[in-house]
Design a protein around this nucleic acid. Structure first.
Length: 481
RNA sequence: GUCCCCGUCGUCUAGGGGUCUAGGACACUGGGUUUUCAUCCCAGCAACAGGGGUUCGAAUCCCCUCGGGGAUGCCA
């Protein structure tokens, strides 16, 4: 069994393509199949090496690996279509020689005109104008300087059956696949629907698992395979991933490139888990599964036929779950850049303190990047005091607490910080939320957050003292003026 | 327009003739834990697109309608 993922390097790895890659990879793992990565870079204007590299990078980040590919080599290369033009040329020459394809001299402008005329009346398909050109007509077109494309001569009255592993039996007739289609452009570059057949055959692919948007292309490909006496493969067409407006997922639905998910602080295991579960369900109502568990259970036959709307909420929930499941040691390097991004000098902080901070703050994180807005509460010299906290700290009730806090730090520097709450309680006569609320605001600058006990533990005597002093200066002292 | 695919809670899904007064998860609501919020735990809300058949019996099989999607490119 040999599977493949064949992206075109025209941008970042899209989340929908990532799902296709993941499912192929998971299946390859399950069946110990070879997994081939092929780069479909025949759209020369839009393809780039940078895109290819970023796609490979994103695939690796997701934990996907392949046995053969442009970087890995293999016995059936090259693995970039742009490096295989001589192969495609041989086959198109053969089709031409056998009369199964022909030169078409229609210009893009002419075709566009035919198309728009047809749109008014009804359906469009290529008229077949150049199907049976006389030598005379050909000569004339050539004399006009027209560069021909090569069109595949679609046979009449053929039935094409796709026995799709997911969709079931789908029957097409050669009459209504849109007429003779172009297989080689006028500049000599071959077209997807044609070369995909050659590559899959030559690379000994056994199962083509790809997006449903290719289902209608499949009869064209099968017709090509027949014409070339190449094998027809097993197909499995994955239902598409949609945005919340039920349109194919695209940029306007939010972030759609794997690259962005990584930057936002999603974990690859969450993305893999979520994408695998989109259109598939594991036994026993389980939602959170490791790659190995998914590999054990996943089957093409059990994948959903219907399109699925991408649920960002659920992905976030799952990501939060994986954040909580990770060890602190694993989390630290992932969160460190974000903590630094919040302007905190992590080099000045003991590793032990950082780990403990992450432990305390982690329940508040759905994304790794969420730590950025939280870290300041525990690690900044002086945290940001939000509006709610400022309002609270300006009340007379808080004034008393602020004053007594400063007392605690200034007059008895030997005080045990763990006694702060007890001492303040006695000194102010406040208790319950009347005590904890303003104290929280004073220490963290926020009205909500982790246990004050933990906050005090991380801040220590000095940290708490600095904040109390800051608040005294800002809210208490200024009010006395 | 034509061809093709699809249609169970708001969303992802389980279910494939009787065990379905339709199960789980996210979201939402309420409660518990907590000084607060988050985590965690418990409970609740909420669906078989519509209409015809077939059958003793249909969410499950068939047909039609409607709805959604994809293809119809010298993109892949």
């Amino acid at each position: 069994m040999r599977l493949r993922f064949a992206p075109s390097p025209t941008g970042f790895l899209h989340i929908g393509n990532a799902r296709t890659a993941i499912i192929n990879y998971l299946l390859a793992k399950k069946y110990s199949a070879d997994f081939i990565l092929r780069i479909e870079d025949t759209d020369i204007d839009r393809s780039s090496r940078e895109s290819e590299e970023s796609i490979l990078h994103d695939l690796r980040w997701l934990g996907i690996s392949w046995n053969e590919g442009p970087d890995a080599g293999g016995n059936f290369g090259p693995y970039r279509q742009s490096e295989r033009f001589d192969i495609y040329k041989r086959y198109s020459d053969q089709l031409l020689a056998e009369g199964k394809a022909y030169h078409c001299y229609c210009t893009p402008e002419e075709l566009e005109r035919m198309r728009s005329n047809a749109a008014a009346t009804g359906s469009y398909e290529y008229s077949g104008r150049c199907r049976n050109l006389s030598g005379e007509e050909k000569k004339r077109f050539i004399a006009e300087g027209r560069k021909p494309t090569i069109r595949f001569r679609v046979p009449d009255g053929e039935t094409v059956v796709v026995d799709d592993i997911i969709k079931g039996r789908v029957v097409f007739s050669s009459e209504n696949i849109g007429g003779d289609f172009i297989i080689v452009r006028s500049d000599g570059v071959p077209v997807y629907n044609y070369i995909v057949v050659i590559d899959d055959a030559l690379m000994h692919i056994t199962h083509v698992v790809r997006g449903e948007d290719h289902l209608s292309n499949t009869p064209k490909q099968i017709l090509i395979a027949r014409a070339l006496s190449l094998p027809v493969l097993q197909y499995a067409h994955l239902s598409l991933v949609m945005g919340n407006d039920r349109k194919k997922l695209s940029k306007r639905h939010g972030i759609t490139s794997v690259d962005m998910y990584r930057k936002e602080g999603y974990l690859p295991e969450a993305l893999v888990n979520y994408l695998a579960m989109l259109g598939w369900a594991a036994e026993g109502d389980r939602e959170i599964l490791s790659v190995d568990e998914i590999v054990e259970q996943i089957e093409l036959e059990k994948l959903a036929k219907s399109a699925a709307i991408f649920d960002f909420q659920k992905l976030r929930w799952m990501n939060g779950h994986y954040i909580r499941a990770k060890s602190l040691e694993e989390l630290l390097p992932l969160m460190l850049p974000h903590i630094r991004g919040a302007g905190i000098d992590t080099d000045a902080i003991e590793q032990k303190t950082l780990l403990r901070t992450i432990e305390i703050l982690r329940p508040y994180c759905e994304l790794i990047g969420d730590i950025r807005h939280l870290a300041g509460m525990l690690l900044a010299e002086i945290p940001e005091y939000d509006d709610e906290a400022q309002t609270l700290l300006s009340t007379p009730e808080a004034a008393l607490l602020i004053k007594e806090s400063c007392n605690f730090f200034n007059h008895e520097p030997q005080n045990d910080i763990t006694q702060l709450v007890t001492v303040l309680k006695a000194a102010t006569g406040l208790k319950g939320k009347h005590l904890f609320h303003p104290l929280r605001a004073l220490l963290t600058g926020k009205l909500k957050g982790p246990d004050l006990e933990h906050v005090i533990e991380i801040l220590g005597f000095e940290g708490c003292r600095k904040r109390a002093e800051y608040v005294y200066q800002k809210f208490f002292y200024s009010e006395q003026q």
